[in-house]
């Protein structure tokens, strides 16, 4: 079973977000990690490989430092990796990223393509679906359980207010939701072995990917106002409860 895992490198969840002088997101000093949802995908690929045999290939798009995250996936047990590193690819343009990934994934046959359903940095959740469309593959999002057999995958997925069990013929793209598994921690043995595994570095041109003009334009980054010390609601329990309910509804808009 040939499994590809699409992986994105993201800021650490605890990263302090700052802006540079020219209003861009400042990545200086920020710890970079594998997007946690993609890590679920890596783990799932490894488990499927352990069960069914085959190969796990990690595919990623991004600047050179993404190699670190890719190596981490290799340390977890993936067999080899392809990283497309090209400044011409705008990470904010999910269609371009999907186009590049599609080229890599078309270059050899895969039975299954896995990724996280969303990346924690831009929270867009677009690339897997765009990739599925480009490759004309069926997609199943937010999987919490994947079983493979008879040329198809049986996937338990989160839907709104429900859990669905769906069947999809392979090859297909399945995206991981939290709860799919608990990703392993690379052993030192794995880290050592990962240093020797194949990591192919390519550019968009190497792949002959047509990027086209970016369809989205980022006009501005800004920081939200600093978290206020919070409103203390005073009064009798009944009154403060009423006020809290009102604020949650009208101000915070969360209920």
């Amino acid at each position: 079973m040939q499994i590809a895992v699409c992986l994105k490198q993201t800021f650490d969840t605890e990263a302090k977000i700052k802006l540079t002088g020219d209003g861009q997101i400042d990545s200086a000093g920020v710890n970079l990690i594998i997007n946690p949802y993609d890590e679920f995908a890596v783990e799932e690929a490894l488990r499927l490989k352990e069960k069914l045999g085959g190969e796990v290939v990690v595919v990623s798009v991004g600047p050179a430092q993404v190699q670190e995250s890719v190596r981490q996936a290799l340390a977890m047990g993936a067999d080899r990796a392809v990283l497309v590193s090209d400044p011409a690819v705008a990470p904010s343009d999910h269609s371009q990223v999907a186009a590049v990934l599609a080229k890599v994934l078309q270059s050899e046959p895969f039975d299954l393509i896995l990724s996280g359903w969303v990346a924690i940095d831009d929270n867009a959740a677009q690339v897997p679906a765009r990739l599925a469309e480009k490759l004309n593959l069926p997609q199943v999002n937010m999987a919490v359980k994947i079983e493979i057999g008879g040329g198809k995958a049986t996937v338990t997925r989160e839907a709104e207010g429900a859990t669905e069990i769906v069947e999809v013929p392979l090859p297909a793209i399945i995206t991981a939701q939290k709860g799919l598994n608990e990703p392993r921690y690379p052993s030192l043995k794995g880290i050592m072995q990962a240093k020797k595994k194949e990591l192919k570095l390519l550019t968009a041109a190497d792949l002959g990917a047509e990027l086209g003009a970016s369809q989205v334009k980022i006009l501005q980054y800004s920081l939200p106002p600093a978290r206020q010390a919070g409103k203390k609601i005073e009064g009798e329990p009944v009154d403060s409860a009423r006020e809290l309910a009102r604020l949650l509804r009208e101000e915070a808009k969360v209920i």
Partner: peptide
């Protein structure tokens, strides 16, 4: 973006 730690206009 970044779990609400930044905002972007697009």
């Amino acid at each position: 973006i970044y779990a609400g730690k930044a905002l972007t206009k697009v």
